[in-house]
């Protein structure tokens, strides 16, 4: 009988050791990627990155890409935040138990992990082709098209967090407000939204963290631009697309600039997701 026990003990120890090894593998890759990005990025970091534009190639910087990314990310948020918050409010407050609500919630989760390159193609077909045809080719790829594509990436994130955050608001708050005779839209906008405000903001930041690093949807919507522009109907440069182009280039001096950009964008995204993580954890504590 002891042989059976010994075997079970051995199997157990081997399995547990392997699971520890698996965790180690995951951590090794995380540290490896971050280390490489930090090392190469810090080496290439220099002030001209922020002052010169990409038209100077390896003598230049990333100023226009930074401005372009900033503009498109903010425009994307301006598009997807109101829509996402309202849609999430609908799911949480008006559609609980309804079939439509359940299926929208379900499909929103699918949109959350839909391939971003297809969303880029979608925007190419519905925005870039029509503007090209309407203006006889004067306006083709544009920063606006890019931000619509990014908005599609951010939308499901905001819908989901808003939905979840509003559901965390205690029902007694709704009952108390309604018993005072307040109409439901006022209840939603002035009581529930305020109660869930920090959660909803977290969702917006989370969406920003996701769309700031996206490259694929921008390739054929915003395209890229070697010059500084702030006009939303111009072709617009962005950090991820510039990094992509520089990485594909054989010139190692451009690789260095790409690494510097990669470091900046990674720092931005990781800082945002750490911030949201801190906000989220505080949120959970205060409601439980």
């Amino acid at each position: 009988m002891s042989a059976v026990y010994a075997r079970r003990a051995v199997v157990n120890i081997v399995a547990l050791a392997l699971s520890g090894l698996a965790t180690l593998i995951g951590l090794v890759f995380l540290v490896w990627i971050l280390w490489i990005t930090a090392q190469n990025g810090l080496e290439a970091l220099k002030p001209t990155l922020f002052t010169k534009i990409t038209a100077y190639a390896d003598q230049g910087g990333l100023a226009n890409a930074m401005v372009g990314s900033l503009i498109m990310d903010l425009m994307a948020l301006l598009i997807c935040a109101p829509i996402g918050v309202l849609a999430g409010t609908y799911l949480a407050e008006y559609a609980s138990g309804s079939r439509l609500g359940a299926s929208i919630r379900f499909l929103n989760d699918i949109l959350l992990s839909a391939p971003s390159i297809v969303l880029g193609l979608f925007v190419y077909v519905i925005v870039v082709i029509p503007t090209t045809e309407l203006t006889d080719g004067r306006i083709t790829f544009s920063g606006f098209a890019g931000s619509v594509a990014l908005a599609l990436i951010g939308l499901p994130v905001i819908v989901r967090t808003t939905d979840e955050m509003l559901q965390l608001v205690p029902g007694t708050l709704r009952e108390a407000a309604l018993s005072l005779g307040i109409p439901q839209w006022k209840l939603t906008m002035q009581v529930l939204m305020r109660a869930a405000l920090s959660g909803i903001l977290t969702g917006v930041l989370l969406a920003l963290a996701r769309l700031a690093g996206e490259t694929a949807p921008l390739l054929f919507t915003a395209f890229g631009n070697n010059f500084m522009t702030a006009h939303p109907l111009d072709k617009m440069a962005s950090m991820p697309v510039t990094i992509y182009q520089y990485t594909n280039d054989p010139n190692p001096a451009l690789h260095a600039i790409a690494w510097a950009g990669a470091l900046l964008i990674t720092l931005f995204v990781l800082a945002l997701s750490l911030l949201t993580r801190i906000m989220f954890s505080r949120k959970k504590v205060s409601y439980e």
Binding site: N40, A212, G213, T215, P240, A262, I265, T266
Partner: peptide, 20 residues
């Protein structure tokens, strides 16, 4: 830390993949 792997933009994976 493991979930941070999901936060790293995919272009960074691409660069790390290609150069390292």
């Amino acid at each position: 830390a493991i979930e941070l792997l999901a936060a790293i933009p995919s272009i960074i994976y691409g660069m790390w993949g290609l150069f390292v």
